[in-house]
Amino acid sequence: MKVIIKQWNAVAAWRWDMPDDDVCGICRNPYDSTCSKCKFPGDECPLLLGECNHSFHMHCIFSWLRQESSQEKCPMCRQPFKGKAQETTRSTAQDDESILPS
């Protein structure tokens, strides 16, 4: 028997690679959901992981850091908040080094 597929619809689910039950400490929405201002989760409303390993929706942490009173500190641990270089960016950097002429 020969089956000819005329049409198919793929369905996929995604989630951020984060612990299941965690919420953004600022807006209290799940990481997989959006900050309180966005409508669609995903790349439009990404997460930002700090060097201190605390993460937030990027929009949430940015609106905090824009406040003068934040003194650019992490709301959780009050260390200076710096975005952590992610795994992927780090491995790309290594590749760049390896192609430099020796």
Binding site: G25, R28, C60, S69, P75, M76, R78
Partner: peptide, 10 residues
């Protein structure tokens, strides 16, 4: 107060 508040409080 402004200086002591953190948005992770509720």
């Amino acid at each position: 107060d402004r200086q002591g508040w953190s948005p992770v409080h509720n």
